[in-house]
Amino acid sequence: MKKEQEKIRVGISIGDLNGIGSEVVLKTFEDSRMLDFCTPIVFANNKLLTFFKKHYKLSLNFQGIDSADKAIDGKFNVVNTWKENVKVNFGKEDKKIGEYAFKSLEAATQALRENKIDVLVTAPINKNVIQSEKFNFPGHTDYLAKELEGNSLMLMVGEQLKVGLLTDHVPVKEIANVITPELITRKVTIIEETLKKDFKVQKPKIAILGINPHSGDSGVIGKEDEEILKPTIQKISEKGKLVFGPYSADSFFGSKNYKNFDAVIAAYHDQGLIPFKTLSFGKGVNYTAGLNRIRTSPDHGTAYEIAGKGEADFHSFKEAVFSAIEIFKNRKEYLALTSNPLKKQSKKL
């Protein structure tokens, strides 16, 4: 009989080795109390992490393993994803380093797909140097959408704010052409479902921001809000979903209107991420909603400018680990309740 897994197995892709990924990963688990919450499994190389450990003068110990299913509870496990030595040049873009970032991500994703890990937390990659025949994507979100079942959506999660995007890594000049009634409906559906099953929100209330300044001012500044957003929001609302908007983005956050909603959907990347990172930077988490597996990441990039200096703040990565654990538990409970209506009814009583 297989021994019951006591702790959630958190798989970790190491990201760009010339950035701050290794630093924030190791600093997060330097606190041995983290091992009370989960079993970390890093996809990298034992010798390489020993180098980082010495460089940052840390004291945590590693358990080298050949496969994620050999991970030991109570240990910081490292799956030796490659054997060769890797030369690290902090703060430098390097296509070779991009290859190792992909090796780590590919192995971690496979382990997630095969249930050898329960959740995946990804350290930052350099989207330029990781590009190859196997990775031809704007970022993690699109890659995982291909590898895992579901329609992915980038959802930024903070203590008081959750921001999803209608379009993520799309050039500004193409945004209006990409947003369609079908896209809006699909994104609203994903966010509503993830709020219910991953964040325990029974009746999600969602705000949608306008595409144009002042939501188009009744068509004076662009017609997309009047002709696409408003009628689509109306149709979604008629189906019983609590979806409101479009709201003028320039005043929505400053007026704290976001506090009246469980999630906000921004029309494009910077419209949503600038206010989110202003309000939550350092503690925010990037969650890939809409998949059949759980993936989170910190809300920052490779930060080459401070790589190797020991100055990186690890709290966003730590929050990403805790968020993945919480979402895993919430989803497990939701699936148990929805698959057993009698249990759900007894809980209400």
Rank of each mutant, 00 (worst) to 15 (best):
M1V: 02
G19W: 08
V24N: 15
T28K: 09
S32G: 06
C38W: 14
T39F: 04
V42A: 00
H55S: 00
Y56C: 04
Y56E: 12
D66N: 06
K70W: 05
K75E: 06
K75G: 02
V79Y: 07
N80H: 08
E84T: 15
G91E: 13
E99Q: 14
F102Q: 04
A108G: 01
A111I: 01
V119Q: 04
V121T: 07
N126G: 03
F135A: 01
N136W: 13
K146M: 12
G150Q: 15
S152M: 09
L155M: 05
L155F: 07
L155D: 13
V163D: 05
V163F: 07
L165G: 11
T167V: 09
D168E: 08
V170F: 09
V170C: 06
I179M: 06
L183E: 14
E193I: 14
P204A: 00
K205C: 02
S215L: 03
S218M: 01
P231W: 00
P231S: 01
I233L: 10
A249C: 04
D250C: 08
N257I: 03
N260S: 10
F261R: 12
K277H: 07
T278Y: 08
G290W: 06
P298Y: 00
P298H: 01
D299N: 14
K309Y: 12
N330P: 12
